[in-house]
C-alpha cells in the first residue's frame, strides 16, 4: 500500500513538474537570460488564467485554445512592459533596486485589480478532459494533470528549439552573453531583449490556462508561485531550459511526496526550503559548474 501510494505520488509529482516547467520558462528567459528580475511574472500567469476563465464561461472555448489565441496580446503586453522598464531603469543604469520595486508594484497592482474585478472567489473552467482519469492497474493518471504536463513540456521544447536553432533565438542567447559585442555586430540589443521579454510574458498566457485547468484560481494564488518559479529557475541553473525541466520535475516530485505523506499544509515550505538551500549551497544550479 505504501509503495503504491509512493508511486502514485511520484507520478503526480512528475505531471506537476511538467506544468511547473511551463510556469518557470518565462522566468528562465527574463531572469536567467536577460537578467531582469521579473517577480511580477506570476501575476501575468494569473491574468492568463482569468482570461481563459472568461472565455470559457462566456463562449465555452477550451482554456488552452484561448491561451494560444491570446498569445499576441500577451506578447504586446510584454513588449510594452519592457519598453517602460528599459526607458525608466535600464537606460538610467539604476535597474537593481528600483526595477525590483517596479515589478513588485506591478505584481501588487495586478493582483488588487483582479480582486476588485473578480473578488476572492475561486474560479474554475470546464473542459471535456478535466474530469477524465486514466487507470492503469493501481496507478491513476488524471487528464487534468496530464494535459497541462504535455502542453507545458511541448511549449518548453519548442522554446528550446527556437532559442538554439533560429536566428532570433541565437541573438537572444548572444545578448545574455555580451551585449556590447552584439552592438558591435550592428544588432540592436534593446530590440532583441524586447522580443525575448515579450516571449517570456507570452508564455504566461499558456501557463495561466494550464494553471486553471489544474486547480481553481483566485487572485492571490500567484504569490505561491513566486517562490516556486525562482526556486526552479535557480536550481535549473538560470539560463538552461533543460535544467529548468529537470529542476521542475524534481520539485514537483518532492512537493507531491511531502503533500502525500505529511499533509498538503507543508507543501509550500518545500519549494522555499529548496530555494534557500540552493542559494546557500549550490547557487550555480544543478547543472552548473
Amino acid at each position: 500500500m505504501q509503495a503504491e501510494l509512493l508511486i502514485n505520488a511520484i507520478i503526480a509529482g512528475l505531471l506537476l513538474g511538467g506544468f511547473y516547467a511551463a510556469v518557470t520558462v518565462g522566468i528562465s528567459i527574463s531572469f536567467g537570460i536577460l537578467d531582469i528580475v521579473n517577480i511580477a511574472h506570476p501575476a501575468f500567469i494569473i491574468l492568463g488564467s482569468y482570461i481563459a476563465y472568461i472565455c470559457n464561461q462566456t463562449f465555452g472555448v477550451d482554456p488552452i485554445l484561448t491561451a494560444i489565441i491570446a498569445l499576441p496580446a500577451f506578447y504586446a503586453l510584454g513588449a510594452a512592459v519592457y519598453q517602460v522598464y528599459y526607458a525608466s531603469f535600464e537606460k538610467r543604469g539604476q535597474d537593481a533596486l528600483r526595477g525590483l520595486a517596479f515589478f513588485f508594484g506591478l505584481l501588487f497592482v495586478t493582483e488588487v485589480m483582479l480582486i476588485l474585478v473578480f473578488g476572492v472567489d475561486y474560479r474554475y473552467v470546464q473542459a471535456a478532459y478535466i474530469e477524465y482519469t486514466w487507470h492503469i492497474s493501481f496507478m491513476d493518471i488524471p487528464f487534468r494533470m496530464l494535459v497541462p504536463c504535455v502542453m507545458g513540456l511541448l511549449m518548453v521544447g519548442l522554446l528550446q528549439l527556437f532559442l538554439s536553432r533560429t536566428f532570433t533565438g541565437r541573438a537572444i542567447m548572444a545578448v545574455s552573453q555580451d551585449q556590447l559585442a552584439l552592438q558591435l555586430m550592428a544588432a540592436d540589443p534593446i530590440k532583441v531583449k524586447r522580443t525575448a521579454f515579450a516571449i517570456a510574458i507570452a508564455t504566461a498566457s499558456i501557463a495561466g490556462a494550464l494553471l486553471i485547468v489544474i486547480q481553481p484560481v483566485e487572485p492571490s494564488v500567484g504569490r505561491e508561485y513566486i517562490g516556486r518559479v525562482f526556486a526552479i529557475c535557480v536550481l535549473g541553473g538560470l539560463q538552461s531550459l533543460p535544467g529548468t525541466v529537470i529542476a521542475a520535475m524534481l520539485l514537483g516530485v518532492v512537493e507531491s511526496i511531502t503533500a502525500t505523506f505529511y499533509g498538503p499544509s507543508w507543501a509550500p515550505a518545500v519549494s522555499f526550503g529548496f530555494l534557500l538551500l540552493t542559494l546557500a549551497f549550490r547557487p550555480a544550479g544543478l547543472l552548473g559548474r
Binding site: F31, A96, G227, F230, V234, S265, A269, S271, F272, L279
Partner: peptide
C-alpha cells in the same frame, strides 16, 4: 548569512521565500 554572498536579486527572492516558509511553520 545564507544569501548575501550572492547577487542582490537573490537576497530579494530569498526574503520572499522566507515569508512563505515562516508562514507555513506558523500555520502548522
Amino acid at each position: 548569512y545564507l544569501t548575501l554572498r550572492l547577487r542582490g536579486a537573490f537576497f530579494a527572492i530569498a526574503t520572499l521565500a522566507l515569508a512563505v516558509v515562516l508562514q507555513t511553520l506558523i500555520v502548522n
